[in-house]
Amino acid sequence: SQTQRTQDENEARRIAEEWKRRGYDVEVRNRNGHWEVTWD
Rank of each mutant, 00 (worst) to 15 (best):
residue 32 N to G: 13
residue 21 R to W: 04
residue 6 T to G: 05
residue 4 Q to Y: 14
residue 6 T to A: 14
residue 37 V to P: 01
residue 13 R to P: 00
residue 12 A to Y: 01
residue 17 E to P: 02
residue 29 R to K: 11
residue 3 T to H: 09
residue 22 R to S: 07
residue 32 N to W: 04
residue 25 D to T: 11
residue 30 N to K: 13
residue 38 T to Y: 13
residue 24 Y to D: 01
residue 5 R to L: 11
residue 31 R to G: 06
residue 1 S to N: 10
residue 8 D to K: 04
residue 24 Y to G: 03
residue 37 V to N: 01
residue 18 E to H: 10
residue 21 R to S: 14
residue 12 A to S: 03
residue 40 D to V: 15
residue 5 R to I: 15
residue 38 T to D: 04
residue 32 N to Y: 06
residue 13 R to L: 10
residue 6 T to S: 07
residue 34 H to E: 13
residue 33 G to E: 04
residue 14 R to L: 08
residue 2 Q to D: 07
residue 2 Q to E: 07
residue 27 E to T: 13
residue 38 T to Q: 09
residue 24 Y to A: 04
residue 9 E to T: 02
residue 40 D to P: 09
residue 40 D to Y: 15
residue 26 V to G: 01
residue 2 Q to Y: 08
residue 17 E to V: 03
residue 29 R to L: 10
residue 34 H to Q: 13
residue 7 Q to P: 10
residue 2 Q to I: 12
residue 38 T to A: 09
residue 20 K to R: 14
residue 25 D to F: 11
residue 5 R to C: 14
residue 6 T to K: 03
residue 20 K to G: 08
residue 6 T to N: 04
residue 18 E to I: 08
residue 31 R to H: 13
residue 15 I to F: 04
residue 21 R to Y: 06
residue 25 D to V: 10
residue 22 R to P: 01
residue 9 E to D: 03
residue 25 D to N: 13
residue 34 H to A: 12
residue 18 E to A: 06
residue 17 E to L: 05
residue 39 W to I: 14
residue 36 E to N: 02
residue 18 E to C: 15
residue 31 R to I: 15
residue 7 Q to C: 15
residue 31 R to K: 11
residue 19 W to I: 13
residue 29 R to V: 13
residue 10 N to I: 10
residue 7 Q to I: 12
residue 23 G to S: 01
residue 20 K to P: 02
residue 39 W to T: 07
residue 30 N to D: 08
residue 30 N to W: 15
residue 1 S to R: 15
residue 19 W to M: 15
residue 9 E to A: 07
residue 21 R to D: 15
residue 16 A to L: 04
residue 16 A to T: 03
residue 26 V to W: 01
residue 30 N to P: 07
residue 19 W to R: 08
residue 24 Y to P: 00
residue 4 Q to D: 06
residue 4 Q to A: 13
residue 38 T to R: 10
residue 18 E to G: 05
residue 11 E to L: 08
residue 22 R to D: 08
residue 17 E to K: 04
residue 20 K to Y: 11
residue 33 G to R: 02
residue 27 E to F: 06
residue 25 D to S: 09
residue 19 W to S: 04
residue 11 E to I: 07
residue 28 V to H: 00
residue 27 E to V: 14
residue 13 R to K: 10
residue 27 E to M: 09
residue 23 G to V: 00
residue 29 R to Q: 10
residue 6 T to L: 11
residue 36 E to Q: 03
residue 27 E to H: 13
residue 35 W to M: 01
residue 34 H to W: 15
residue 18 E to S: 05
residue 12 A to R: 02
residue 2 Q to S: 10
residue 7 Q to G: 09
residue 37 V to G: 01
residue 11 E to G: 03
residue 38 T to M: 10
residue 11 E to S: 07
residue 29 R to A: 10
residue 30 N to I: 13
residue 5 R to H: 11
residue 25 D to K: 11
residue 29 R to Y: 08
residue 20 K to M: 12
residue 5 R to V: 14
residue 3 T to P: 08
residue 34 H to G: 09
residue 31 R to E: 10
residue 34 H to S: 11
residue 12 A to T: 02
residue 19 W to V: 09
residue 34 H to R: 08
residue 18 E to K: 08
residue 14 R to N: 06
residue 28 V to W: 02
residue 35 W to V: 01
residue 2 Q to K: 13
residue 1 S to V: 12
residue 36 E to P: 00
residue 36 E to T: 06
residue 37 V to I: 10
residue 21 R to N: 14
residue 3 T to I: 12
residue 24 Y to S: 02
residue 7 Q to N: 12
residue 7 Q to E: 13
residue 25 D to G: 04
residue 12 A to P: 00
residue 3 T to Y: 08
residue 17 E to N: 07
residue 36 E to I: 09
residue 16 A to D: 02
residue 29 R to I: 14
residue 34 H to D: 08
residue 38 T to N: 07
residue 32 N to L: 07
residue 29 R to E: 07
residue 7 Q to H: 12
residue 30 N to M: 14
residue 21 R to C: 15
residue 33 G to Y: 02
residue 9 E to N: 02
residue 4 Q to K: 12
residue 34 H to N: 09
residue 30 N to A: 10
residue 20 K to A: 12
residue 32 N to K: 05
residue 19 W to Y: 14
residue 17 E to Y: 03
residue 14 R to K: 10
residue 36 E to S: 03
residue 34 H to V: 15
residue 26 V to Y: 02
residue 26 V to L: 02
residue 10 N to T: 12
residue 4 Q to N: 06
residue 8 D to R: 04
residue 22 R to V: 05
residue 40 D to W: 15
residue 18 E to T: 04
residue 35 W to R: 00
residue 27 E to S: 11
residue 39 W to V: 11
residue 9 E to V: 06
residue 17 E to R: 05
residue 10 N to R: 11
residue 40 D to G: 14
residue 40 D to L: 14
residue 5 R to F: 12
residue 4 Q to E: 09
residue 28 V to K: 00
residue 36 E to D: 04
residue 4 Q to G: 05
residue 36 E to C: 10
residue 2 Q to N: 14
residue 1 S to Y: 12
residue 33 G to Q: 03
residue 39 W to G: 03
residue 27 E to W: 05
residue 15 I to Y: 03
residue 8 D to G: 06
residue 33 G to T: 06
residue 39 W to A: 06
residue 28 V to L: 07
residue 39 W to Q: 03
residue 36 E to V: 08
residue 35 W to S: 00
residue 16 A to S: 04
residue 21 R to K: 15
residue 16 A to F: 05
residue 7 Q to L: 13
residue 31 R to A: 11
residue 12 A to K: 01
residue 4 Q to W: 09
residue 13 R to E: 05
residue 10 N to K: 12
residue 22 R to W: 06
residue 40 D to Q: 15
residue 19 W to A: 11
residue 2 Q to H: 14
residue 28 V to F: 03
residue 37 V to M: 02
residue 36 E to H: 02
residue 11 E to Q: 07
residue 6 T to M: 09
residue 17 E to M: 05
residue 37 V to L: 05
residue 35 W to F: 05
residue 26 V to K: 01
residue 3 T to V: 13
residue 2 Q to F: 11
residue 40 D to A: 14
residue 36 E to L: 06
residue 23 G to Q: 01
residue 39 W to R: 11
residue 36 E to W: 07
residue 2 Q to V: 12
residue 11 E to D: 07
residue 6 T to Q: 04
residue 20 K to H: 10
residue 27 E to D: 08
residue 12 A to D: 00
residue 2 Q to M: 11
residue 19 W to N: 05
residue 29 R to S: 11
residue 31 R to L: 14
residue 23 G to T: 00
residue 22 R to E: 10
residue 23 G to N: 02
residue 35 W to C: 02
residue 23 G to K: 00
residue 37 V to T: 02
residue 28 V to Y: 03
residue 23 G to C: 11
residue 18 E to N: 06
residue 39 W to K: 06
residue 31 R to T: 12
residue 25 D to W: 12
residue 24 Y to W: 06
residue 10 N to A: 14
residue 10 N to H: 11
residue 17 E to I: 04
residue 7 Q to K: 14
residue 16 A to W: 04
residue 6 T to F: 15
residue 8 D to F: 07
residue 14 R to V: 08
residue 32 N to Q: 08
residue 36 E to G: 01
residue 22 R to N: 09
residue 38 T to E: 07
residue 15 I to P: 00
residue 22 R to Q: 12
residue 38 T to H: 10
residue 17 E to S: 05
residue 18 E to F: 14
residue 26 V to I: 04
residue 33 G to S: 05
residue 13 R to Y: 11
residue 1 S to Q: 11
residue 7 Q to Y: 11
residue 14 R to W: 06
residue 37 V to Y: 01
residue 31 R to D: 09
residue 15 I to D: 01
residue 32 N to A: 08
residue 13 R to M: 09
residue 9 E to M: 05
residue 7 Q to A: 12
residue 28 V to C: 08
residue 25 D to P: 08
residue 29 R to P: 00
residue 14 R to M: 08
residue 21 R to H: 11
residue 35 W to Y: 05
residue 32 N to R: 05
residue 17 E to F: 04
residue 4 Q to S: 08
residue 10 N to E: 14
residue 14 R to Y: 05
residue 3 T to S: 10
residue 31 R to W: 08
residue 17 E to Q: 06
residue 6 T to Y: 15
residue 39 W to C: 06
residue 30 N to L: 15
residue 25 D to Q: 11
residue 26 V to F: 02
residue 14 R to A: 10
residue 39 W to E: 02
residue 22 R to H: 09
residue 3 T to D: 05
residue 29 R to C: 10
residue 31 R to V: 15
residue 34 H to L: 14
residue 15 I to K: 04
residue 3 T to A: 08
residue 8 D to Q: 05
residue 40 D to I: 15
residue 7 Q to F: 12
residue 18 E to P: 00
residue 15 I to G: 00
residue 15 I to M: 08
residue 10 N to M: 13
residue 34 H to T: 14
residue 5 R to S: 10
residue 18 E to D: 11
residue 37 V to H: 00
residue 11 E to A: 07
residue 22 R to G: 06
residue 38 T to K: 08
residue 2 Q to A: 09
residue 7 Q to R: 12
residue 4 Q to F: 15
residue 26 V to E: 00
residue 20 K to W: 13
residue 4 Q to T: 13
residue 12 A to N: 00
residue 11 E to P: 00
residue 14 R to I: 07
residue 16 A to M: 06
residue 10 N to W: 12
residue 32 N to P: 02
residue 9 E to K: 05
residue 23 G to D: 01
residue 21 R to L: 09
residue 26 V to H: 00
residue 17 E to T: 03
residue 37 V to E: 01
residue 8 D to S: 11
residue 36 E to F: 07
residue 7 Q to T: 13
residue 29 R to T: 13
residue 17 E to G: 04
residue 15 I to L: 12
residue 27 E to K: 10
residue 10 N to V: 11
residue 21 R to A: 14
residue 11 E to N: 04
